[in-house]
């Protein structure tokens, strides 16, 4: 049992902002513990299905809504900034595709998910901590980290499907805004979509989304699991978790882009 040591480490790191290394260390130990002493498959299966429903299907509405309008805005912004008649109108479709596939679908959606799913994960696990439900699991001999966090990690591996939907809807939003806004013809837009298409960019985007999915599942879990205090602290932990999840996503986005496209 290391969790009381981890709580101390986490608290120390929270009180002394320079001590980030301690937090990273306790986060790494937490991730290792998640994969130890697995829960019975029969129970785990139902937990995973529930988390897929809560985390993925429950987020599709907001993902579709945001992607549609972001795609539309990208198309309009691109069209409004093309003042030179020598620049072909198919650039609108091209720019929409590139922006949506490379950044907006995987990264922007992940930041939204860090807010929606991340705060849900932190507050639900944090509430279990303050109401001693996690202690109850530990006393029963259950590996509470495996029971609580592992299903979320597995569920979030379905996140690339949500990102694929975000890509499709984003481009659809761009097409609707471009064509029905009178900025481009449908033929020009579709030509731009097909122009210099590099399939590896989609692979890059999916790889990023898998990494972000792991971050969205584990960083908020860490903040919920090791939190101390009462109801007010649950709210604070959810806010801190959103900030840190976003920071980690943005840093990893830079690192992965440099590694895979640089």
């Amino acid at each position: 049992m290391k969790f009381n040591i981890l709580i101390f480490t986490h608290a120390t790191a929270t009180h002394y902002p320079m001590n980030y290394l301690a937090s990273i260390g306790s986060y790494a130990i937490m991730v290792r513990e998640v994969f130890k002493k697995p829960t019975k498959w029969r129970i785990m299966k139902s937990l995973i299905l529930k988390e897929i429903d809560d985390l993925i299907f429950g987020s599709l509405g907001i993902i579709i809504f945001i992607s549609f309008f972001i795609g539309g805005v990208v198309a309009i912004q691109t069209a409004l900034n093309i003042s030179n008649p020598l620049i072909p109108r198919n650039l609108i479709g091209f720019a929409t595709r590139q922006s949506v596939i490379l950044e907006f679908a995987p990264t922007f959606t992940s930041i939204i998910m860090a807010g929606k799913v991340g705060s849900y994960i932190t507050s639900s696990i944090g509430t279990m901590r303050v109401t001693e439900q996690i202690d109850a699991l530990e006393v029963m001999g259950v590996n509470s980290l495996n029971y609580l966090v592992f299903p979320k990690i597995v569920a979030m591996f379905f996140y690339p499907f949500a990102v694929a939907i975000a890509m499709y809807i984003g481009i659809l939003g761009g097409w609707i805004a471009g064509v029905f806004g009178g900025f481009s013809s449908s033929a020009d837009f579709v030509e731009g979509l097909q122009l210099d298409f590099i399939p590896y960019h989609v692979t890059y985007s999916f790889i990023k989304s898998v990494v972000f999915a792991f971050v969205i599942a584990t960083v908020p879990s860490y903040h919920g699991y090791y939190m101390k205090g009462g109801a007010l602290e649950v709210g604070k932990a959810a806010t801190v978790s959103f900030v840190w999840t976003s920071v980690v996503i943005i840093i990893l986005n830079y690192v992965l882009t440099q590694l895979m496209l640089g």
């Binding site: 829960t39 019975k40 029969r42 129970i43 109401t131 001693e132 439900q133 202690d135 109850a136 530990e138 006393v139 029963m140 001999g141 259950v142």
Partner: peptide, 29 residues
Amino acid sequence: RQEMGMVFQGSALFDSMTVEGNVMFPLEM
């Protein structure tokens, strides 16, 4: 620890489970 039972101050029942689900939980595990 599986030979220990604990009654917490705040009961620490799992909110998302029924009474039956809570009592069944250790058996299922």
